[in-house]
Design a protein around this nucleic acid. Structure first.
Length: 191
DNA sequence: CCCTGATTCGC
DNA sequence: GCGAATCAGG
């Protein structure tokens, strides 16, 4: 396969959307993620807003060592949603229609601790990443997709996070944060 | 071990 | 220009 205009365009689009090189490669077909990454670099678009690994690598061999190279010609932050730091008021659900019936899931769902026992930071993180969730259906889940359920199973407004899981775990990083709380900090058994 | 992107270098 | 191999890291 060669890099036709169309393919390059799709590459740019997906890369811009924050898709991973492997995802892009899969979508394009006929190329490996290495090919995609190589192309991305050749095209000059390397860093993105979101990434699992924000630029690192330190060539063991640095012929021309820049003392404190910090020149950052990064004029275009592009995909950088503003972070107005909203006041964490008491709002989780905008509104619940006039429905009351709860339909059992039939299968055990992952635990969703009540908000009051989750660290505010973890919660904020979740709220943030759930915007980027893949919104997968039950059937679309794989061993590698976050299985955190969002919304009410009884409504159409229900989906699974679907973001890449934290190696081995059933959830993505953010959801791992709220799913696995240390036994401490959630103790208020007293009465 | 799974994944990510980054870099190198022969082609 | 291309991308496999390799590297570096989460």
């Amino acid at each position: 396969m060669s890099w036709t205009d169309e393919r390059v365009e799709l590459l740019k689009k997906m890369w811009g959307e924050g898709q991973s090189a492997s995802q892009i490669a899969k979508e394009l077909g006929g190329v490996t993620r290495n090919a995609v990454i190589g192309k991305v670099h050749r095209l000059g678009l390397s860093n993105r807003a979101t990434g699992a690994s924000p630029a690192k690598s330190e060539p063991k061999d640095k012929p021309a060592p820049a003392p404190k190279a910090e020149a950052k010609p990064r004029p275009a932050p592009k995909t950088e949603p503003a972070r107005p730091t909203p006041a964490p008021a008491a709002e989780t659900k905008p509104a619940v229609p006039a429905r009351r019936q709860i339909i059992p899931a039939g299968q055990p769902l992952p635990p969703q601790p009540s908000a009051n026992e989750i660290s505010p930071e973890a919660l904020a993180k979740v709220n943030e990443i759930e915007k980027k969730a893949k919104k997968l259906t039950l059937m679309e889940l794989t061993e590698k997709t976050c299985k955190w359920p969002v919304g009410d199973p009884a409504t159409e407004d229900f989906w699974f996070c679907g973001l890449p899981v934290e190696a081995g775990k059933p959830y993505c990083e953010a959801h791992v944060g709220v799913a696995f709380q240390p036994m401490s900090s959630r103790r208020d058994r007293r009465r």
